[in-house]
Design a protein around this nucleic acid. Sequence first.
DNA 1: CTGTCGATTAACCAAGTGGTTAATTGATGG
DNA 2: CCATCAATTAACCACTTGGTTAATCGACAG
Lengths: 127, 127
Amino acid sequence: MANTEDPLSITFAALADPTRRAILTRLARGEATVGELGEPFEMSAPAISKHLRVLEGAGLIAREVDARWRICRLRPEPMHDAHDWLEAYRRHWEGNLDRLVEFVERTHRAKAAKPARSAPRAPRKKP
Amino acid sequence: MANTEDPLSITFAALADPTRRAILTRLARGEATVGELGEPFEMSAPAISKHLRVLEGAGLIAREVDARWRICRLRPEPMHDAHDWLEAYRRHWEGNLDRLVEFVERTHRAKAAKPARSAPRAPRKKP
DNA sequence: CTGTCGATTAACCAAGTGGTTAATTGATGG
DNA sequence: CCATCAATTAACCACTTGGTTAATCGACAG
């Protein structure tokens, strides 16, 4: 199922692992071989190889073969897209407006019996 | 294993599904009941319930019970953290500097036999 | 009390994930 | 030629995930 997923899902899934994020952090400092990337982790080589396959599948890294070594480089473009998606929610966490609205609403609810909620939701008819 | 994961991994994993991202997008417009959230999707109610559980586990939504309805609200703070993590890579996708370096390096390699690569990687001794 | 409605839980399934060890491939060097 | 080294592939395992249908729970309305 993951293979048929959209790019953004694949990107987020690839980022949802601390080992892979650490590998990306390492690669942000410069290219590295597979052995160098795996060295900090108490993990077998095939496990690292699989993580790199996931990162490559997400387009987050590129591998280039150099004799017996595979040189890995960061490909940050998918991160850009993920960043952009999150950016749309920035106003929701910036400023206290939302929290204030929420607080006022909750206080109101505590005093009134069945206070009306904020606008966008369609009014439920209670038959 | 996922239950013992760090908050950032849980957040990214929750975002790695188009249905859940659509639910968050809907909630950015305002609170909604579970039924309203599930209505756009050709999916059973339990499936929606599970998605909401994942989102709640990631701290991305909060559910409040109102009679027989569950009112869902966006909790954007974890997105802020994810956004922050990605922000650190901004310089890698902004500007053509990296792509230029890469191009020059590749061109150089095509001409020279075994050109030295960029600095940060430890030099591999070929015994 | 009983039926209904919103929502969740239970039980199950197919497929994916993250890890292992063992075997394999390719390039290097004695 | 042969041993070695970097890395991947193969085969396997435990566990998670995303979905289903059937059963359950709690709040209302007659």
